[in-house]
Design a protein around this nucleic acid. Sequence first.
DNA 1: TATTGTTATACTCTATAACTATA
DNA 2: TATAGTTATAGAGTATAACAATA
Lengths: 163, 163
Amino acid sequence: MRIGLLDRILEISSLLQLDMKHAFTGTSLTESRVHVLWVLHHSGPSTQQALAEALKVTPRTISALVDGLAASGYVQRRTHPSDRRAVLVTLMEDAERMMSKMAADHARLTTDLESVIDEADRPAFIRGVDAVAHRLRQLVHEEEVRYDTVGGSDLSLDEDSTA
Amino acid sequence: MRIGLLDRILEISSLLQLDMKHAFTGTSLTESRVHVLWVLHHSGPSTQQALAEALKVTPRTISALVDGLAASGYVQRRTHPSDRRAVLVTLMEDAERMMSKMAADHARLTTDLESVIDEADRPAFIRGVDAVAHRLRQLVHEEEVRYDTVGGSDLSLDEDSTA
DNA sequence: TATTGTTATACTCTATAACTATA
DNA sequence: TATAGTTATAGAGTATAACAATA
């Protein structure tokens, strides 16, 4: 067995990450901050709770990310119309324009990547990707259940402080 | 247009990352540290320079990662036989055993993921994955060249301090 | 002079815990 | 009592710059 499917996918993941990283070096943007902007662009003004769920991080982390984005003028915290505890993180106009450009780049890259796959292979390819994604969702979900009940893995040398 | 290829791949990436994260919560291991161990397991004792190249981070970052791994007993710094400036980061015996288990898990997951793809689709699927990986390598390489010469992107609101 | 790794410093992401204001 | 967000604190990853020891 040479290079397996998993290694190929991992390489693609790391290449995509590199691609993102390159796109933002020299700016105040980072992957996490862009992730916030991406959610705002697609969902509209959102509470920090909603952002925390979308990014799967704690609310505290969102506070820090929003601080950074606000300092650079990408977003603004606005008062929530009906809940005075909450805040609506809102994209500024320039940032909205920038995100539209980014979405266009995203669509362009999608087309680009699809175009390098032989047309005859595409349906099978998409089926395969969906099957893999579905299986991974299943596996991650199983782990989350196990994790919430017992937790931990046997892959480490660390002392097991469960005792 | 519904969900495009790129979004599907990005979802798979994030699921794989989650999967890794779950596997190591509760231990002193992290994705970066495991990456170091993985390289050591596959390449044998390595200088920190070599590790820096493999992980595409600065040597300084490797110092910190190796410090953490050494403190937990995963690796040891040994003297390089022919270059007294260099150090050979070496897997400890227990860690070596652990990495063999991890490699087995990795192989198992590869098989698992392959098995959910319809057998008739597999050849086309692999061709597609390879084509996409190849195209991404090309794109990242182009960016690296452009980045080394001019640098920066037009995707940000930050002041351009090139002036 | 160039290379290997370190110390010093700093920024970002992330988490938990305690707290404030509001529901 | 529960929820939204913050302050306080801490650990990890990362980077640049200056420096030591060795090639």
